[in-house]
Design a protein around this nucleic acid. Structure first.
Length: 648
RNA sequence: GCCGCAGUAGCUCAGUGGUAGAGCGCACCCUUGGUAAGGGUGAGGUCGGGAGUUCAAUCCUCCCCUGCGGCACCA
């Protein structure tokens, strides 16, 4: 038998017979390691203890102390255990796939009846029985035809299809625990009892298309979460509760920011508090844009079909457009219009007025453009995904050789805004040429390189989103990570030579000839509606003072202090602070609680002591202790803190 | 759009084949209270919309709308 050389984590090497398994290696090291071992890393790959090693390799034995390997195995095996439990309870259910994901796993089933919450309880109970049975996991490599015949015989059509999708040269592994069998690439634990029985939970059932394809059957997906121990599971469930508390739909109600109702699905009724956030953010963006060389325009909402046909939207985007037909009294035919889903065609119309010179470029045309898109009903989500929204949109008309410089300028612009708004953790993705595209390979090469180079020049790294660009050009996407680790794609930057062509935009070059400009579509926050939702959730409603709709409530402790409270409010208002008095016949405890729930950043309480000393008792949101300050002191402090970041 | 679940007072929710309840909020009264809910009284609902079954429907059936969780979508 041939020998192979294994390298251990400590750098030692050992000659062993080819075909040795990690289980045997662990056994050779120590009895206790053999007992604790759960899997191995072989040349960096996650390796089942039972898989033979046939060539020279580096090897490390994993135990339950190795979090990544342990969680992977626990979650993966739970997917199989759940599938087995389901088939034991309902033998006619067809199994499909069940990958590890996020904090757990999911498994998709084909079953005529929907799973109910009671079913989930039954499945969970059955899973615990399987775990307690400590069934040994067995593995065998089968040849392809045998697997296919097996799944034809057992009437598992999805497995047959999966089998056919496995590349021809990969070994096909069959696993068992108990009598239950599955096709799976592994690795696995050694027996079901290694899975902690009290550290998982089935969360919910949802529909999911087979292979993610909306033309394929809808399956039922059961989601589960799993951890190494019960404490970790509990911590996760607590985290979910905390996340639910910062849900912008809930905070939107508690802070009286907005509401939505069924007469206008996907559109927002902004209340005074919410609209204050909106206009504050928009004012800030306008100042930033003005300072960065943009000109602001405003264009029509309802635009005739002719323009959408010329731009290509009528052909490619019509299903997402609100169509407005108007019977004009004297017209022979109805005129057909659409609410604009995007601003770009209108901006080209502005550009096309009058002859443009190369001296006018780059022309940075901005609009807080109100758009309407008929989003699929299932996509709507609070104020994050809506049918009526306003973008911080702009189009930069420029020549080819200005693309790179404009890209870099934009990234620097965006970075400053994200920092001002409290987001320092964000990344750049470069989406490259898709399969269906226009333009030459040389053009794509050049423009993709321009975007990549500009990103680096601005001081940022990027990852590639292969094939995710628009059909007319590549794009950059800016994804920010919020306070609880969720990613949101907000900023975008797209190179578009297509629309100027379609809408016949041109400028006169230095050579006196007509040239075609390129358009750079760009946005920083994306839609104000969605971005405000992100801000609310990121800050859990505790917005920085400059964005907070109600900045200060002056609360009377006794009614004899009412007049003084009003005086304090007037003084704050005169200094530009958004302040109101709370003179209601309630105890200070009640007022403090209510305004804390309403996320008011500062409560200034005033009783007779404050009246006599002309002071206030300041309580900052989220803090328990209070501070007695003179009127002048608190006004000065608040004025300083309430300044927008660009005005400090 | 697809699968599943849900829709009862402003909010959170309970409930029943015989025209409905709680807590909070709201109004009024008492209380003037020192930093996260003081007490009392009262008002408030076409039980999402439509059709059907029934002597009778908020409750059962069907259709629609909206929301929620996913999936798909996000030229």
């Amino acid at each position: 038998m041939s020998q192979i050389s294994l390298t251990f984590p400590d750098g030692n090497t050992k000659e062993v017979p080819a075909g040795i398994t990690p289980a045997e290696i662990a056994e050779g090291i120590s009895k206790s390691l053999a007992k604790k071992a759960i899997s191995a890393q072989v040349n960096g790959a996650h390796w089942d203890l039972a898989w033979p090693i046939e060539e020279d390799a580096s090897i490390a034995i994993n135990t339950m102390q190795d979090d990544e390997a342990a969680l992977e195995l626990i979650r993966h095996d739970l997917a199989h255990i759940m599938a087995r439990a389901v088939q034991e309870l309902w033998p006619d259910v067809k199994v499909t796939i069940g990958p590890v994901r996020d904090h757990g796993w999911f498994y998709d089933f084909d079953r005529a009846e929907p799973f109910t919450p009671e079913d989930l309880g039954a499945i969970e109970a059955r899973m615990k029985e399987i775990i307690n049975a400590r069934d040994v996991v067995k593995t065998e490599v089968w040849d392809r035809d045998r697997v296919r015949q097996h799944y034809i015989d057992t009437n598992e059509p999805y497995k047959v299809e999966l089998l056919d999708r496995i590349p021809g040269d990969e070994p096909i592994r069959m696993y068992w625990h108990g009598d239950w069998q599955d096709l799976c690439r592994g690795p696995h634990l050694q027996h079901t009892g290694q899975v902690p029985a009290d550290a998982f939970k089935l969360m919910n059932v949802a529909g999911a298309y087979w292979l993610g394809d909306s033309s394929r059957p809808m399956l039922q997906r059961i989601y589960g979460v799993a951890f190494k121990n019960r404490e970790a599971l509990k911590a996760h469930l607590t985290m979910l509760e905390e996340a639910a508390k910062r849900d912008h739909r809930r905070l939107g109600r508690e802070m009286e920011l907005f509401h939505m109702q069924e007469e206008a699905p996907g559109q927002i009724f902004w209340h005074p508090n919410g609209w204050r956030i909106y206009t504050t953010l928009q004012d800030y963006m306008r100042r930033k844009q003005d300072a960065d060389g943009y000109v602001e325009v405003n264009t029509p909402q309802v635009v005739n079909r002719n323009l959408w046909e010329a731009s290509g939207h009528w052909e490619n985007y019509q299903e997402h457009m609100f169509i407005v037909e108007v019977d004009e009294e004297h017209a022979r035919e109805k005129t057909v219009n659409a609410l604009k889903p995007m601003n770009c065609p209108c901006h080209v119309q502005v550009f096309n007025q009058g002859l443009k010179s190369y001296r006018d470029l780059p022309l940075r045309m901005a609009e807080f453009g109100s758009c309407a898109r008929y989003e699929p009903s299932g996509a709507l989500h609070g104020i994050m995904r809506v049918r009526g929204f306003t973008q911080d949109d702009a189009h930069i008309f420029c020549s080819d050789d200005q693309i790179e410089a404009e890209t870099q300028k934009f990234i620097e612009f965006l970075a400053g805004i994200y920092a001002d708004l409290g987001f320092t953790d964000w990344k750049v993705k470069l989406s490259t040429r898709p399969e269906k595209r226009i333009g030459s390979e040389e053009e794509w090469d050049r423009v993709e390189a321009a975007l990549g180079n500009a990103t680096k020049a601005a001081g940022y790294d990027y990852t590639i989103n292969e094939g995710e660009g628009a059909f007319y050009g590549p794009k950059l996407e800016f994804v920010l990570t919020d306070a609880i680790g969720r990613d949101w794609q907000c900023g975008t930057f797209q190179v578009d030579p297509n629309l100027p062509e379609r809408l016949d935009a041109s400028y006169i070059g230095r050579d006196g000839e007509k040239h075609r400009p390129v358009m750079l579509h760009r946005a920083v926050v994306g839609s104000f509606e969605r971005f405000i939702g992100i801000l609310i959730e990121n800050y859990a409603g505790k917005l920085p003072l400059w964005l907070a709709p109600r900045q200060v409530v002056v609360a009377a402790i006794v009614s004899d202090a009412d007049a003084y409270c009003v005086e304090v409010v007037e003084k704050l208002k005169a200094a530009g602070i958004r302040a109101e008095a709370d003179l209601r016949n309630e105890k200070i405890n009640y007022k403090v609680r209510e305004h804390s729930v309403g996320k008011v950043p500062y409560i200034l309480a005033c009783g007779m002591k404050e009246v006599e000393d002309r002071t206030v008792s300041t309580r900052k949101l989220g803090e328990k202790q209070t501070k007695v300050q003179s009127l002048d002191e608190i006004v000065a402090e608040l004025v300083a803190e309430a300044k927008a970041p660009d005005q400090r």
